[in-house]
């Protein structure tokens, strides 16, 4: 394959990967924006998203003959349900673990977050074991039907990659509408900027914070579903690495900044794809986390963050 085609091929892979990172990064950044907490359990909620999807799919009699619009209908339902369930988990985590620590010294919620992460990982381990779990790749053509590849100017585009990109962009558009065009979104941004002043507007900040956890976790749930479709497999520790990379993306974009999380997600995805192409698969984590360290040292506010990082 010519050099340039290979480059574009990896660019597309990177964008697909980046879409998933962006969806996860949004949860980190929104939660940080509103309660200044790095929710280390967030990556595991992403894994839960693929686990929930699996369990829902198990209830649906999918066969190799299910096709066409039925597949898309099933996919939509699974996405919505998985997002909803993850959202509920996110709310429960906030309610049970973080809320009472809201005014505690910073280390306490941080350690709690790591604890919640371990609990989720162990629960998933009990749930589906310690080996990789196959995920039914029923999109786009039906169960067991191989993925279509479009060839555009010599570059092959897998339909699955396209689905990942389209779904993640749709979810991000919906989030933008919600955050920047609705009353709840305005309340979230106000609470992130000044909690007391927000209360003086009549905003119930507990409710607003709960909604923020819900939305962030729901987006991770969407990412969990599409990662299952994309990779055809899932694993109880998937969220550990993916979470750290998405966290890097959030920091790269400017933690607390929604647009920054999306930008950072795509950048990290592309960097990872390029690293695996031009350096080595084994070096991707090293490169990504080196980026994290470099930002933290040289530009802690990230690409789009102001000196005082822009919140939600």
């Amino acid at each position: 394959m010519p050099e340039i085609h290979q480059f574009f091929q990896q660019l597309i892979n990177g964008i697909a990967l980046g879409g998933m990172y962006a969806l996860i990064a949004l949860g980190y950044t929104m939660v940080y924006g509103i309660v200044e907490l790095i929710n280390f359990a967030h990556g595991d909620v992403y894994t839960l998203g693929s686990y929930f999807s699996l369990s829902i799919l198990a209830l649906i009699p999918l066969s190799r003959y299910t096709g066409g619009w039925q597949l898309w209908l099933i996919a939509s339902c699974v996405i919505v349900l998985a997002a909803l369930l993850c959202g509920i988990v996110g709310v429960l985590i906030e309610r049970l673990a973080y809320r009472r620590l809201r005014n505690a010294p910073r280390l306490a919620p941080l350690i709690t977050a790591i604890g919640v992460s371990l609990i989720l990982e162990n629960l998933m381990q009990i749930w589906k074991g310690t080996s990789e779990v196959p995920f039914p790749q029923f999109l786009p053509g039906g169960l067991g039907v191989p993925d279509n590849v479009f060839v555009v100017a010599g570059v092959g585009i897998h339909e699955r990659a396209l689905i990942v990109v389209v779904v993640s962009i749709l979810a991000m558009l919906a989030l933008n509408l919600l955050v920047f065009r609705t009353k709840l979104g305005t309340a979230m941004r106000a609470t992130a900027q000044d909690r007391d002043a927000a209360q003086l507007m009549g905003i119930n900040i507990n409710g607003t914070i709960a909604w923020t956890f819900f939305i962030g976790a729901a987006l991770a749930g969407v990412a969990g579903f599409i990662s299952g479709i994309y990779y055809g497999t899932t694993f109880f520790l998937n969220g550990y690495q993916a979470g750290l990379k998405a966290f890097t993306a959030a920091v790269l974009g400017g933690i607390g900044n929604i647009t920054g999380a999306m930008l950072g997600g795509f950048l990290i995805g592309i960097v990872e794809a390029m690293t695996s192409q031009y350096i080595s698969d084994q070096w991707t984590s090293v490169v990504v986390f080196s980026i994290l360290i470099l930002i933290l040292v040289f530009r802690p506010s990230g690409l789009l963050g102001e000196q005082v990082p822009e919140k939600v």
């Binding site: 941004r189 007391d196 002043a197 003086l200 900040i205 822009e310």
Partner: peptide
């Protein structure tokens, strides 16, 4: 709660203005 008190009709313009700078 503070937000319930606002709904009762007690409204405050706080010290230091506390407007939302990025809205």
């Amino acid at each position: 709660r503070a937000d319930q008190i606002v709904r009762k009709g007690i409204v405050q313009s706080p010290e230091g203005r506390r407007i939302f700078p990025r809205l």
